[in-house]
Amino acid sequence: MTGSEFIAGIFPYIAVALCLLSTAWRFVRWLSLPPHVKWTLYPVPEGIAGQLKYMLKEMFTFETLYKFNRRLWFGSFSMHMAMVGAALFFILYLGGWSTIFVVQLCLLVLVIAAIYIIGLRIYDKNLRLLSNFEELFNLAFLGGVAALGFAASAPHVPGSLRLYFLGLIELHPNTSVLSTVHILAVFLGGLFLIYLPLSKMIHYVSKYFTYHHINWQKK
């Protein structure tokens, strides 16, 4: 097996598995911690519906940032939305829809947003004070993955790319159809998936705990 066969044929499975495992591990770890001191932050949204509403609103508007930190909101909001968008429309694309241009758009937004936030973190005196290498690295990493993804899919997506991913899903990927840049993109993307849950970007899990188990703890 050649290196590129490994990267395109085996590594994606490893990356996804590690990503899921690490996420699960952190979730279980936090779930298993004994109940701490009650430290509710009132008011607690009423009922499950209220909490869901608050969460969804926050997730899809980034309201807290919007209200108090508009400059960062522009970058952060578009970055997160572009991430969701890229994944969503890519799945649609695999499903046979011609949505790849939306994916490309999202990737472009991701790149720009990452650069914008890095700039803001360096330019703004307070953000600079708070940021360390890790913050910048995470942004650059994400931006890099998006940039490679964009390069791999622009200007025209070969039909073979779709077949490769469908093959991945069906567990017999055809790696021979990929170009070097495709393989690089797959590699970097995989690395990012492995890194994501181990980094502080695990906030997609921690948020569940800080809200539901701490701020909204009733009893």
Partner: peptide, 24 residues
């Protein structure tokens, strides 16, 4: 002592350094 681990690990581990707290 464990009673503070959940908040400490999540608070110390994931703050995004967005600085939203400053204006509060």
């Amino acid at each position: 002592a464990k009673i503070y681990n959940l908040p400490l690990e999540t608070y110390l581990g994931t703050c995004a350094k967005c600085n939203n707290c400053a204006e509060q």
